[in-house]
Design a protein around this nucleic acid. Structure first.
Lengths: 346, 346
DNA sequence: GTTAGCACTCGATATGATTTAGTGCTAACA
DNA sequence: TGTTAGCACTAAATCATATCGAGTGCTAAC
């Protein structure tokens, strides 16, 4: 598959792709002949281009048009980019995330900044807490027949659930239950709560065994709810900047993807799985992407880690001819900032 | 302004508008001549149409085209619709909202159902709790230097805030503060917490007066956070069904309105203000709408009331030639259902 | 007051000519 | 042998032109 390209072909291919990224128009031999420092005539370029086409890197939309990159061509280009990224970050453009108290707001901001800086559509998932430990549980009376369970998990994420009880529960019982819960469950993750633990607690609870069931269910629900991470998006309309995505069919598909967010989840999980590739950044070109009907797009994702097992994914979606270099740089920089702020925050 | 139209003109105008709502194409005199039961020739219709045009109800996009309604024409049509709506709801199509525990999910569902049933873009705001009473406050120790305040307000909405303290707070103090807070603040709305109340509490708190300040601030913040209602949207891509909104400019404007949601807030507040018009439903046609750059759209809003001062707004946005009748019916029906479910829920 | 008829308007569609950007191939050249 | 100039060829894009069709306004007749 991966033939080795002569130095010259290499340069020409790169020039073609770069030019196409800029303009979105098929590139002709003359253009390349003038753009590169190879000092070759358009005729020679033409010969090389014919070769490159045969190898599958570029293609002619129709006779008498210039060439445009195929997915294989893009892949070549992106792989090279990723290869060469030896932490040459720190470039220009200060990107500023303002520190704000709520994590969610910060994430929304990141999405916005990302979309604005790249001019593509951006998304970010709120962190998922895999295996997060229960830190603290508190039951409180709300009403005669309602008890509220508050669960704090590692990372100071607070969740609550209201439990409706059949019988009235008095304060004393509540106090007992509180102690029972905290001694038995603190420090455990969801997976670690075994049936044994539950049985043990029920035994200890005596006449309130029934209530224990309800409470545990509520706790489990509350913690699990966190796993249902939120996804924030920004700049969906950026796709209108790129004519190749602006036709009705593509636009509808893309924008409803952004509105529904279900498909975005599949990006997130895929990104989390393939996880720690080089620099944590992954690029899906055309059909490689987790989408149906989105063969005209590329997706770039990266994973961020706020510590404490709080990991999430950011992604941008744009045309295949996106400015991969800028996107990757901007992402790294932004995530670095995000992670720093998060660290300071605790 | 509001001339009285002859019966015939009235019928013709209505026929023109209805036809245009269907087709989106300018309607000619022949069409009307055949469609109505007036048994008039196209020539006669033409004369009447010329009159109606002069009165400002319809307009010709260019010579030798049929007529399309002006905003004034739409207004005439909608006003008549609203006038005639004597609770003739209960028509066909069962709309089903599934009951789910979280209010937010239900609202999302309402938006979705509304969008699907009307084929326009739909939005719904989560209820705002004006003057909601504090029902219950609970402080709990999370960490050595962190206290969590949980506030339950009427309607069982639960909010929490983490407070960082300078000094370590022991359990006893917390207990005292809990009692202090609940005896002083329960049953009050945000507005009712006077400086006097605060001073009084500080006095009672003695050496923990400083902490009281922090806690109250947290409580106020927590409650206020609720006032920042969420807005859920669905079906933004429906606008692509209507060519007159599908051009790049309009589409970008509309879709980013739906993504940003800030402009939607202005609809919500406007709808809440103008509140209880006939049937609670309001129609903004073209320039009447709270938007800039949206003179090609109509907005229909309605206010729902889940009781306990929990009020919110639903809205749909579509082309001016929307099926106002269906939209209004669907909305009423849906909201009635929503309100019923909410009432059962408590 | 209604209607038939007709000249007229103007957008939409189709047609064809022209231009333009590019190619592939061949033959000459260093 | 690799490079280049030159040329015939292709297909899209652009533009002007003709044609069609839906609809109007006006006039004259009923």
């Amino acid at each position: 598959m991966a033939e080795i390209l002569s130095d010259r072909k290499h340069k020409i291919l790169k020039a073609i792709i770069q030019n196409y990224l800029d303009t979105g128009e098929p590139v002709g031999s003359r253009t390349i002949s003038k753009d590169t420092d190879l000092n070759l005539s358009s005729a020679t370029i033409r010969n090389e281009m014919a070769d490159l086409e045969e190898m599958g890197y570029i293609i002619q939309p129709h006779t008498s048009a210039g060439r445009i990159p195929t997915d294989k061509g893009y892949r070549f280009y992106v792989d090279e980019l990723i290869e060469g990224r030896e932490e040459e970050i720190g470039g220009p453009a200060e990107i500023v995330i303002q520190k704000q108290d709520k994590i969610d707001r910060m994430l929304k901001q990141v999405a916005k900044v990302l979309a604005n800086n790249t001019n593509y559509a951006a998304m970010i998932s709120s962190p998922v807490f895999h295996r997060s430990k229960i830190k603290f549980i508190q039951l409180s009376q709300v009403d005669k027949f309602q008890v509220m369970a508050i669960v704090v998990v590692e990372g100071n994420i607070i969740k609550n659930k209201v439990i409706s009880t059949d019988e009235e529960v008095d304060g004393e019982t509540l106090l007992k239950l509180n102690v029972l819960l905290n001694t038995n469950l603190n420090g455990l993750t969801l997976d670690e709560i075994s049936l044994g633990t539950v049985a043990q607690m029920k035994a200890q609870a005596g006449e309130y065994a029934l209530l224990v069931d309800d409470v545990i269910e509520a706790v489990v629900n509350a913690v699990q709810e966190d796993e249902e991470y939120e996804i924030y998006t920004s700049g969906a309309t950026n796709i209108f900047r790129y004519p190749e995505l602006s036709d009705q069919k593509n636009a509808t598909a893309l924008i409803s993807t952004f509105e529904e967010k279900n498909q975005l989840r599949s990006i997130v999980s895929r990104s989390m799985e393939n996880g720690n590739e080089k620099n944590g950044i992954q690029v899906y070109i055309g059909d490689e992407s987790p989408f149906q009907n989105m063969k005209d797009c590329s997706v770039v994702t990266a994973t961020y880690d706020l510590g404490n097992d709080m990991k999430g994914t950011v992604g941008i979606i744009g045309p295949k001819r996106m400015d991969y270099e800028n996107v990757m740089k901007t992402m790294s920089k932004l995530l670095k900032q995000l992670e720093q702020i998060a660290k300071k925050d605790r």
